[in-house]
Write a protein that binds this DNA or RNA. Structure first.
Length: 244
DNA sequence: AAGGATGTTGCCTG
DNA sequence: TCAGGCAACATCCT
């Protein structure tokens, strides 16, 4: 489920249900949030911010984070324990193994839309500015920082670094300005490709480095290492990706 | 077929 | 006191 583009796909699917203006008639599930607060509320809109699916109501917003294994079903159920369901007149939204949260008030006060790599408000300059404040941070860690690159996950991280030919262990401060710019640009550009390929069912086919054994550019082996503070699996070609 | 993974939180330990 | 380690969540892929 997890990276930003997958959440956009869920959002778009739910937007097609025409639930805007409809009231929540009942809720269920083992979530610890005060779900009763949603009963009687009129749905205003489905939104997303990075890996967060947002279902907004007049006075509050329901945030769903799918983590690694979260799933959802529309008008269907399955055996695993129901985390949260929203029952509308003709529609049930059922969420499993996810982390729901209630955000009181206006979501604009909680979310920096300029940080979302798939938002029309994504702001490259703002991202650059945030990056420059972290000269000692590894580029493989910074890409996973949701305050800077909201929606980027481990696949996007690896593919972006391969695309811009930067070794994952470089620090931000060591990168030439052109590479910093490319980093910011590709974080969003690759995410749109990810979205397009995921919709077409061709995502895996288009991976160049993630889970790959050989580099398609130079025919040398792709290395896999756990790297950075984030300790995530990192794939790279030590020949094609430069260490600055 | 066992083990790791597209993620994050929160508890435990030193 | 706080940072790091690590389990938990449940499913799918290799």
């Amino acid at each position: 489920m997890p990276e930003g583009p997958s959440i956009v796909i869920i959002k778009e699917k739910m937007q097609q249900l025409k639930l805007e203006g409809k009231k929540v008639l009942a809720v269920a599930g083992n979530t610890t949030i005060d779900k009763e607060k949603l009963v009687g509320q009129k749905l205003v809109a489905f939104k997303s911010w990075g890996k967060h699916l947002l279902i907004s109501f007049k006075d509050r917003t329901l945030r769903i984070h799918f983590l690694m294994f979260g799933t959802y079903l529309i008008n269907e159920t399955k055996k695993t324990p129901l985390r949260l369901s929203l029952h509308f007149k003709d529609t049930d939204l059922n969420f499993y193994t996810c982390a729901p949260a209630l955000i009181e008030g206006d979501p604009d006060e909680h979310y920096d839309w300029a940080a979302d790599i798939l938002s029309p408000e994504w702001d490259e300059k703002a991202a650059l500015k945030k990056l420059k404040a972290l000269p000692d941070t590894l580029v493989c860690d910074v890409l996973l920082d949701q305050e800077i690159f909201s929606g980027v996950g481990n696949i996007i991280k690896n593919e972006v670094l391969y695309r811009i030919k930067v070794h994952p262990a470089c620090t931000i401060g060591s990168l030439p300005p052109a590479k910093l710019k490319a980093l910011v640009k590709e974080a969003s550009a690759y995410s749109y490709d990810f979205l397009k390929w995921k919709k077409a069912g061709t995502l895996k086919k288009n991976w160049l480095v993630y889970n790959k054994k050989m580099c398609g550019r130079c025919d040398l082996p792709i290395h896999k290492k756990t790297m950075g503070k984030t300790k995530r699996g990192t794939f790279f070609c030590s020949n094609c990706q430069k260490q600055y």
